[in-house]
Amino acid sequence: MKKSVFLGTLAVAGLAAGFASAQTLAEVQARGSLNCGVTTGLTGFAAPNASGEWEGFDVGLCRAVAAAIFGDATAVEFVPTTGQTRFTALASGEVDMLARNTTWTFSRDVDLAFEFVGVNYYDGQGFMVPRALNVSSAMELDGATVCIQTGTTTELNLADFFSSNNMSYEPVPIETNAEAQQQYLAGACDVYTTDASGLAATRATFEDPSAHVVLPEIVSKEPLGPLVRHGDNEWADIVRWTLNALIAAEELGITSANVNELAAGTENPEINRILGTEGDLGAMLGLDAAWARNAIAAVGNYGELFESNIGENTPIGLARGLNAQWTDGGLLYSPPFR
């Protein structure tokens, strides 16, 4: 009896060890869907629409990865995570990737053992106040009560900003964007601070957006990007190059409308390589040759994704700014597909 218990213990321990080193791609393929961690709801970036389907800029990236793997952009399970739960969810394997307005920082990359695979939105922390307060600069916020999402870099930036300017403030810690919105609108805090894109997205959902102003100061660098666990480089490559494919597609003029036409073969060898008509980039990733073609067909290129979710023609109305292609003076620059 003791022997069988011992053997059982060994077997279970072996299973646990096996799980820890399993390859994420194989797991995702066996499961048949991608588990993607997103916010609990930030309009334009990740929020369920009226029919309950997730949509948004970050959601688009999840769908692109799913399309690259399965050829099916709907093979995604969206897992809503808060600022506090996101890293545990990723570290524990509950999600395969996070696309959740997460700032790329040194300690998260190195100490928390995550792998940021790129930047899909260059952002910075801003402040929003009601217009009625007649505040025109963040330097006038001495003594203000500030709503802030806990477990974020904004929390640390806020402390640094106020102490370096010798100002005092009262933090009101809050779990999710929805709660922050409710507290801010009720006047329980004077100021709401988060990434400027998040402020724009939040303001767009207000009954009267014009009653609130986003102050001009941007107090930090917030490169937001998708991330995966450390240690599974093949999986990181898939997410990284899916993002790069979307960015390169915009640069090369591949859109969801013309991708199938271009996939028949073009004069441009780089387009041919991306779309799988030339070379074997897909096989190098362990994916189908049409991986990038499927991703672009499903969600469009980076520019399309931006314009349809958060661009100037949407209620959120963000300008491309830093997030324009490098050829247009922005920071988006995909390494070559070769």
Partner: peptide
Amino acid sequence: RSTLGGITINQTGRE
């Protein structure tokens, strides 16, 4: 729970 078990864990990754 909110300081040690919330923000600190989140900022340091020491769950």
